[in-house]
Amino acid sequence: MNIFRLAGDMTHLLSILVLLLKIYATKSCSGISRKTQDLYAMVFVARYLDLFTDFISVYNSIMKVVFIASSVAIVWCMRYHPMVRRSYDRELDTFRHYFLVGASFALALILHEKFTVQEIFWAFSIYLEAVAILPQLVMLQRSGNVDNLTGQYVFFLGAYRAFYILNWIYRYLTEARFSRWIACISGVVQTALYADFFYYYFIR
């Protein structure tokens, strides 16, 4: 664990918790893409299938449970909370996100480290995470305005991506075995999409 990864994990956690708490406190999810939230919940569930098979650290296990629980809670609120669901901007959230799921899964079937259920779902989660922000990006461009909640959420997510890239550079320089190009390329694509989002956010 280096400082960049810890900072990345904490900003990632903050992005999700701030979103969940604000949605719950204000009873509104206006401006938030439910499709992006669906994708993130799928990302965490698919990636953390190793929760019961591979123990890495107490920190890792707790964070995995928190990420799954909080992302599922956001989706639950947006779908089923009687007041929150009324504030959902359905007509602006039009991205066909199931294409992303299908394409990511197809890519995972082709590009993976081993042909096992866990490895394929792990690769799927990496590819899907890289593009999961797209429905939110499209929604932002359609609505044309960034409110505080969306802005903070994307700011923390962008910070998480930036710290993780620094973490990878650090690990690349300090660890002997570092050759997982699947995650690296996907991570760079994901960060580039956030850079686009930031650009749009700042010119507003």
């Binding site: 990864r5 994990d9 890495i56 995995k64 792990w122 973490n167 990878w168 075995r177 995650a183």
Partner: peptide, 10 residues
Amino acid sequence: KHSSFPKDEL
């Protein structure tokens, strides 16, 4: 020791 990048990350 787990140093298998990036499976030891979140």
